[in-house]
Amino acid sequence: MDIRVQSDTFDLGHEAQVFAQRQQGMGAVVTFSGIVRDNDQTLQAMEIEQYPGMTLSQLQSFSAQARDRFSLGDVLVIHRHGRLKPGDIIMMVATSAPHRVDAFQAAEFLMDYLKSRAPFWKREIAKDGSATWVDAKSSDEDLLDRW
């Protein structure tokens, strides 16, 4: 398992490539990445606050749970914090498994937990300087029920 919480950006293509190449006997690699979205062209920046220490231990715990639940090879999670701009990469998850179903499901499991149980908080700063904390969605919370 490779779990990283960092403010620096990272190269999605490079990380995916390195992850895929170090797998042995795995037929499937799934990657998901989250990007800062600016639907109506009003966003200046997104700030991501974290609970240092707890973020890493939570991500490690979800990844360990994913490995218990699914037939997995390996897990990679990278999650950024700090000030990001529209179009910047926020995070990525990669999973490997002998077959695709486990790799897809484990990636979804990790994302569902990451959304609602990892101690990160997003704040949007508009071009006019006003700032708004992003509310958690009940639909994201509901998704946890499927596991």
Binding site: G34, H79, M111, L114, K115, A118, F120, A136
Partner: peptide, 10 residues
Amino acid sequence: VAFFPPMTGG
């Protein structure tokens, strides 16, 4: 002890 709003990761 830590208090915070519902988390918004991902």
